[in-house]
């Protein structure tokens, strides 16, 4: 059943991934404020990850259960990182 359905053009996705990778490398050399550069780079990384997850891992075609399995741990990692901030990041400055 999974095998017969329409799938995205994998090569086009690859082209996008490469373009975004080059963009991230170029952004890191831009004469912007450090925080702006970091922000842009991680936005690009998130878009790349999303492209892979949606197209290559086929999340685009999956139901809510698999989505939940994929998204909940990501949220937990974000929560863990934020809750560690007071003890490490705010602590030393």
């Amino acid at each position: 059943m999974t095998l017969e359905r329409a799938h995205p053009n994998y090569v086009t996705v690859w082209v996008w991934l490469v373009v975004l990778m080059i963009a991230a490398v170029l952004v890191s050399y831009l004469p912007l404020a450090k925080s702006a550069v970091v922000f842009l780079i991680f936005v690009i990384a998130a878009v790349k990850a999303l492209l892979v997850a949606l197209n290559y891992m086929h999340l685009k075609f999956e139901g809510p259960v698999l989505w939940a399995i994929a998204v909940v741990p990501v949220l937990l990692v974000v929560g863990l990182t934020l809750l560690l901030f007071p003890d490490f990041v705010f602590h030393h400055h």
Binding site: L76, G79, L83, P86, D87, F90, H91
Partner: peptide, 18 residues
């Protein structure tokens, strides 16, 4: 259960605001 863990660490030198 994912947001209670630091109650093991009240005397560990953890940020008191937590």
């Amino acid at each position: 259960s994912f947001i209670v863990w630091a109650h093991h660490m009240f005397v560990s030198g953890m940020d008191p605001r937590l």
